[in-house]
Design a protein around this nucleic acid. Structure first.
Lengths: 232, 232
DNA sequence: CGCATAGTTGAACTCTCTCAACAGCCGTGG
DNA sequence: CCACGGCTGTTGAGAGAGTTCAACTATGCG
């Protein structure tokens, strides 16, 4: 289960170049203003769930260290990975009373839990937090739209290339460490494990990426990858 | 640019329990409180654009009558329909300075334009508006997640069935009038025109829907359609 | 060690796309 | 009034990208 300890102020790693990271930095400012007192730290071990689809949605979360995955299931077992969350990312917002997705730790992780009621009070007392939330949600929606374009109109190679670029941009480097399995990537991109594996092998044999082992990828020729991702 | 659908699905979609009418009503209340003064009505004719990808994002919009479509284009012409907007729906929110999608009228329409600066001021002076925005954005994100599951994991029939149910739920009836073309539907669901056409014909021949003409659809056997949509 | 899990590769299949033709509707203009 | 072209929707036949099924390797953990 989730182990909760007293909250300590989390100073985070340096922010990357993407909007997401910038907002995450803003998040910390907002947090120091109004959220710090209501957050509770917890550690989660690899594979452990934070909540399930259908659970009451009574907390909001932030990733401090590690990585988290949110998923949705269809009745016959088909799975879709809604998002991968990394340090600085907030998640678990909901307009409804219940969870519409499951959240699990991709690897051992540290998170902060904010009780929903207290979070909503903080929203009332701190206008800056409200502005931050609006910006973050708008950004999330924009990313979601980009992802829908990817899911609906891109080919397998384009999807993989876009995914690797996105992961690299989050990290702000030309190397990526993938804490998730091929199955997670497949369910994130709307492909099968086999296609993900084959496509990565293909990109490696073309010299576009290097892949010393399945979890470590270097964007050897970033420009080429970008060209592929855009569909040219 | 971010566009938001103000409504959550009312009936059967797993997205959320909030009824569309309710949020739409809230929207109007919020508007009367702070937005009424800054909004300007405008009429748009079928096919006319409200803004293009890349334009400065200096307005927020609400549909009063008619219907609007937002789209994204890839460099080689592949298109994705981000959303269809109907009366009561707000759209055109953005965290960035520029539009990330194009908005066009699906049919002759009436819309209200709110200058962005004034809108943001209204946000500061009216806390209720901020809460409304947060709820709406959360709902939009939830719908987006549902849509990604559809795009990534559902088959053609499941996509069409889900789409028809969603349109019916928005209207709160068992009949649907489709103001968009088959091409729009295809680009919305990540299919081709031909597949959309064939699949609808198939559903009609199975007696699940009735289709007196291409634009009018009646859910003859809603339960069957729901079963198909869920993938059983 | 031995078993389970993750990743890769091969071969056959299939759902959807692509290409192509045709039908229906509508507004325009002769 | 009808002919015409343009656009939308439907249907057919063939092709292909990605899936499915299956085998095999590598890695990690008891």
């Amino acid at each position: 289960m989730i182990q909760i300890t007293a909250q300590t102020t989390a100073r985070r790693m340096p922010a990357g170049p993407v909007a997401r990271r910038d907002t995450a930095a803003t998040a910390d400012d907002a947090q120091s203003a109004a959220l710090a007192r209501i957050g509770a730290r917890a550690t989660v071990r690899r594979g452990e769930p934070l909540f399930h689809e259908g659970d009451p949605a009574d907390h909001v979360f932030k990733v401090v260290a590690g990585a988290v995955r949110t998923t949705k299931l269809m009745s016959d077992g088909r799975r879709y990975v809604v998002d991968f969350l990394f340090p600085g990312d907030f998640f678990g917002f909901s307009e409804g009373k219940y969870r519409t997705a499951t959240a699990e730790a991709l690897c051992d992780a540290i998170i902060v839990r904010y009780p929903r009621a207290a979070f909503e009070q903080a929203l009332q007392s701190d206008a800056g937090l409200g502005r931050f939330m609006l910006t973050m949600l708008c950004g999330g929606l924009s990313l979601a739209h980009e992802r829908m374009l990817l899911l609906g109109r891109k080919t397998a190679v384009e999807k993989i290339a876009s995914f690797l670029l996105m992961m690299a941009d989050r990290k702000g480097a030309d190397t990526v460490e993938l804490p998730m399995t091929r199955a997670d990537i497949a369910d994130y991109l709307g492909l099968t494990v086999e296609t993900v594996s084959r496509t990565m092998t293909q990109l490696r044999s073309e010299g576009v990426i290097r892949m010393p082992d399945p979890a470590h990828i270097a964007l050897a020729r970033r420009a080429a990858l970008e060209t592929i991702a855009e569909g040219a």
